[in-house]
Write a protein that binds this DNA or RNA. Structure first.
Lengths: 247, 247
DNA sequence: TGGCGCTTTTGATCTGCGTCAATGCTGAGT
DNA sequence: ACTCAGCATTGACGCAGATCAAAAGCGCCA
């Protein structure tokens, strides 16, 4: 009821061709971004046999908080929101997963957050038990997973500063700069357009604000000629303004 | 200038004898809490040769954000605060490290936060390069480090919900319940006294509040007979009140 | 035993952001 | 083209918690 359905354009592909594993890991478009970068051709072949591509449509639920972790996911296309909910309905979006991101890095028994497709998305899926067995035999995969987890921990700490100590304006600026950087990494180069496939409510729940404040601040930035709002995103007009404000 | 010196009682020992490695890992009081639980006696012997005990006095700096990671630490006694600072002086305490906690889990090149002794503290220190070499040869140590990192990631996500979506009263209740649980784990059993060796400013910076709000909310709880404030901590009077409010 | 430095507490006032309510916009279906 | 559903935007108002200011508590040391 609070999940925003959006225009069904295929945001999944970040300006280039749709990145999907297809049936051959060797040609996977997100391999260099994902934990698979730790594997050689031979190991990749083994892993491929365990994988199955899953496609989700917009707003589909990949898994829910408290569910058993039966599968782990390597996102190949699209965007997911990761959500923690309180009993009374308050939500905190703990992150957005982009192509190359891995869901299930902790190898815990139960999910500690829900994941929902913000756009149509494609994920390379593994049975948890199979994946865990494989990783036990590949120490450099564990090492790589640990690197990814450490990176996520850094981002989580950044986000704590944002949530605890930034103003609404600084939060929005930081968020936009973060999205710009992350899309650049996925696309392989900077982009003029900063894609925002998630709705205002998701942004609000990510930044610890209300939807009204998000709307007000972004529109004020547009009035002040700091950015322009375009379909599915924004474009920076005054990059310095954002660099100065962002965390 | 904003670091509160406190009564110099030795909070380090959590109600029992001071836990320190001494010179023999086999008798280490925090072994069962720390990543060393992954090692057998033989491996423990090897690791011991690489370790040196470091003692820090209250308010001492273990390392600073942006510093090279030259050593990693296994806390054996005392409490440290982990801090991210903004250029203008705003601070976010991202966590408190208790005995058994490991600092440097990410094996990154640079620290992303500062660590300061809240109480006198003792840490088992390793040169980063030495520790990394050792871990490369011990896959189950990497696995254990990954487990610890995953656990920290969970706690970080909990904290995002707290910072983004809880009221001041809920934040305080969650914090106190968290400290109660963590001290119980260190001590091996529940304790009536919830030790709060950190000052009000640290609590405020952890919860994304001001020192005045922290003081007001805790004192209001006392007036409402939910808890009593005692030297170096608090005691719950109405446990249900806290269980209901806490995240 | 009194004064000093630091932290905590308490009170008065202010304000950034939330809440409530209404209106506008856009795409999909008929 | 019209309508409906779901967001997004905008405005008016209120409040939780910040800010500003002062007093009180506490350990330390001469």
């Amino acid at each position: 009821m609070d999940i925003p359905p959006r225009h069904s354009d295929h945001e999944a592909h970040a300006g280039c061709a749709l990145r999907s594993r297809g049936d051959d890991c060797r040609f996977c478009g997100v391999r260099h971004l994902s934990i698979c970068q730790a594997l050689d051709i031979n190991e990749l072949d083994q892993l491929e046999k365990m994988a199955s591509d899953s496609v989700y449509e917009e707003r589909a639920v990949l898994f829910r908080e408290e569910d058993e972790v039966s599968s782990v996911f390597n996102l190949t296309a699209g965007v997911a929101r990761l959500i923690r909910s309180l009993p009374d309905g308050r939500r905190q979006v703990t992150g957005f997963a982009l192509p190359g991101d891995f869901l299930g890095i902790s190898l815990a028994k139960k999910w500690r957050y829900s994941a929902e497709a913000v756009t149509p998305l494609v994920a390379c899926r593994f049975r948890r038990s199979t994946f865990e067995t494989f990783s036990e035999k590949n120490p450099h995969l564990i090492k790589k997973m640990h690197e990814f987890a450490s990176q996520e921990l850094n981002m989580a700490q950044d986000h704590m500063v944002l949530l605890g100590r930034l103003t609404a304006e600084e939060k929005l600026a930081s968020f936009l700069v973060e999205m710009k950087k992350r899309w650049a990494r996925v696309a392989g180069h900077e982009q003029g357009l900063i894609r925002l496939p998630m709705g205002r409510q998701d942004i609000a729940d990510y930044l610890g604000l209300t939807i009204e404040t998000v709307s007000r601040v972004i529109n004020q930035m547009q009035r002040d000629r700091k950015l322009v709002i375009v379909p599915d995103g924004v474009r920076f007009v005054d990059q310095n303004y954002f660099d100065d404000l962002a965390l």
